Structures are given as C-alpha cells and as structure tokens.
Computed example of a mutant assay.
Amino acid sequence: MKKLLIFSLLTILSVSYSFAQKDADAKAILSKVSAKYRLYDAVKTDFVFTLDNQQAGVKETQSGTLIARSKSNKFKVTLYSPQTTGKPDVAQEIISDGKTQWTYLKKDNEVQVSNVDNSGEGLNPAKIFTIYEHGYKYIYTGEKKMGGTIYQEIDLTPEDDKKSFFKVRLEIDKAKKQIYSALIFDKNGNRYTYTLKTFVPNVAVADNVFTFDPKAHKGVEVVDLR
C-alpha cells in the first residue's frame, strides 16, 4: 500500500491543465495562482498526503517535503515514515536535476536512476503550482470558509477518459492566491488528498540539493534504468 500511496502522490504532483474553452471564473483564478508562482526562483513546502477508501476500510497518511525550482525543472521530494514524536525519519527521496531522476529507497538502501520524462506524461513535482495548464476541463464551484480562511473551489476533469481518475478538486486560498489542497477521485473508489501545510517562496537552496550523491549513502546499491 505504501508504494501505491507514493505513486498517487506523484500523480497528483504531475497533473497539468488547459485554459482552452473552460470556465472563465476558474481561468481567472488559476491564472493568478500561476502568475504569482512564476515570480519565485525556488519554493519549499511541507505537505500531508492521505489515501482514503471508505469501502475498503483503508485510510493512510504520509508527510513529506517538496523543494522545487520549476524554471529549470528541478525538484526534491522527501517522504517520511509514519511516527508520532521526534525528528521525521526519511523513507524515500525522489530527486531530479531536470535531466536525471533518482529514486532513493532508504529501507532497501537502493537508488534507481532514470532519465527525466519530458513527454508531458511523466511525473514532475516541479510543476505542482502550475498543474492546470494542459489537458483538462475545469469549472469554478464557489467559495468555502474553513478556520477563518476563504478557499475557492475548482473541479477539473481530464479530457482523456483513459486516465485512472475522473476528477481533481482544488482548494485555493483566496487571499494568498495559492493552492492549499488537491483531492483526486479515482475510478476504483480511492480518494487521494494532498494538503500544503507550509509554503516558503524564494527559499535559498544550493544546486546540489537536486542531485543524489552515492558517496553520502554508504553501501547504497545503484540501479541504472537508463
């Protein structure tokens, strides 16, 4: 189930959406989100990801951190093992320098190396805040207030009906013009929720953050899939 949880998270992060012939209100909101994000060099966010399937009685939660430099297609996703106290323990890392991608599995002390998929179908967490620019219809469904904050809700449906999911619901902080959460509805009854807990724009980050150094991981097995 953990592998499914991680894959679903990356699926959410890599989805993108189109502006053509779509709801005008939704387009205006999403355009503001995109324009604001493009001003930043790099961003860092802590997130929580939840898989929920009521029929199967399954509910799992995993936390993580994303550092992204979208202009150069670079990112680092760190996923943590479940725990209640103490410093988070790294379970997995997905790192890309825009050309090469490394997937590090701490439990197995293994790193898988592959080429970045630039076809548009690949996983690209660097594009999380511009996830609405190609391939989807969308509609603005109104505002909701939670904890004193007003969120604008937008539902997106894929133009390709072969997708494994049929809808994505975005919650956007109206004042900050920033994505707060994404809820994916898949065809198997699963609900995947990705919620941003923190957001740090223009974070100072060295370029070597977006590469994997085998020397820093004693005994790591390198599996080259290129």
Results as ranks from 00 to 15, higher is better:
residue 28 A to L: 11
residue 29 I to Q: 01
residue 29 I to R: 08
residue 30 L to M: 14
residue 30 L to W: 00
residue 30 L to S: 04
residue 30 L to N: 02
residue 30 L to D: 04
residue 30 L to I: 05
residue 30 L to F: 06
residue 31 S to N: 15
residue 32 K to S: 13
residue 33 V to S: 06
residue 34 S to F: 01
residue 34 S to W: 03
residue 34 S to G: 01
residue 36 K to Y: 14
residue 36 K to G: 09
residue 36 K to C: 02
residue 36 K to H: 15
residue 38 R to W: 12
residue 39 L to Q: 12
residue 41 D to S: 15
residue 41 D to W: 10
residue 42 A to D: 03
residue 42 A to E: 04
residue 43 V to L: 12
residue 43 V to F: 11
residue 44 K to T: 14
residue 44 K to P: 06
residue 44 K to F: 01
residue 45 T to G: 03
residue 45 T to L: 08
residue 46 D to R: 08
residue 46 D to K: 13
residue 48 V to F: 00
residue 51 L to V: 07
residue 52 D to E: 10
residue 52 D to Q: 01
residue 52 D to S: 03
residue 54 Q to Y: 04
residue 55 Q to D: 10
residue 56 A to S: 03
residue 57 G to P: 05
residue 57 G to K: 04
residue 57 G to T: 13
residue 57 G to E: 05
residue 57 G to V: 13
residue 58 V to K: 12
residue 59 K to L: 14
residue 59 K to R: 13
residue 59 K to Q: 15
residue 60 E to C: 00
residue 61 T to D: 08
residue 61 T to M: 08
residue 62 Q to N: 04
residue 62 Q to G: 06
residue 63 S to D: 05
residue 63 S to P: 04
residue 64 G to D: 10
residue 64 G to E: 10
residue 64 G to Q: 07
residue 66 L to K: 04
residue 66 L to I: 14
residue 66 L to Q: 12
residue 68 A to D: 09
residue 69 R to L: 11
residue 70 S to L: 08
residue 73 N to R: 10
residue 73 N to H: 12
residue 73 N to K: 05
residue 73 N to G: 06
residue 73 N to L: 03
residue 74 K to S: 10
residue 74 K to E: 15
residue 74 K to G: 03
residue 75 F to M: 06
residue 75 F to D: 07
residue 76 K to D: 05
residue 76 K to T: 10
residue 76 K to W: 02
residue 77 V to A: 06
residue 78 T to I: 15
residue 79 L to N: 10
residue 80 Y to T: 12
residue 81 S to V: 02
residue 81 S to L: 13
residue 81 S to W: 04
residue 83 Q to V: 06
residue 84 T to F: 05
residue 84 T to C: 06
residue 84 T to A: 07
residue 84 T to H: 02
residue 85 T to K: 11
residue 85 T to P: 01
residue 85 T to L: 05
residue 86 G to F: 04
residue 87 K to H: 02
residue 88 P to H: 13
residue 88 P to G: 08
residue 90 V to A: 02
residue 91 A to S: 10
residue 91 A to E: 12
residue 91 A to Q: 03
residue 92 Q to I: 01
residue 92 Q to T: 06
residue 92 Q to Y: 08
residue 93 E to S: 10
residue 94 I to F: 11
residue 94 I to W: 06
residue 95 I to V: 10
residue 95 I to D: 02
residue 95 I to F: 00
residue 96 S to P: 12
residue 96 S to L: 02
residue 97 D to K: 03
residue 97 D to N: 14
residue 99 K to R: 09
residue 99 K to V: 07
residue 99 K to L: 04
residue 99 K to T: 06
residue 101 Q to P: 05
residue 101 Q to K: 07
residue 102 W to Y: 01
residue 103 T to K: 07
residue 104 Y to L: 08
residue 104 Y to P: 02
residue 106 K to I: 04
residue 107 K to Q: 15
residue 107 K to D: 14
residue 107 K to V: 01
residue 107 K to N: 11
residue 108 D to K: 14
residue 109 N to F: 05
residue 110 E to M: 12
residue 110 E to C: 07
residue 111 V to M: 06
residue 112 Q to V: 08
residue 113 V to P: 09
residue 113 V to I: 15
residue 114 S to N: 14
residue 114 S to V: 05
residue 115 N to K: 11
residue 116 V to M: 14
residue 117 D to C: 11
residue 118 N to M: 12
residue 119 S to W: 05
residue 119 S to Q: 06
residue 119 S to M: 00
residue 120 G to V: 15
residue 120 G to P: 09
residue 120 G to Y: 12
residue 120 G to H: 08
residue 121 E to I: 05
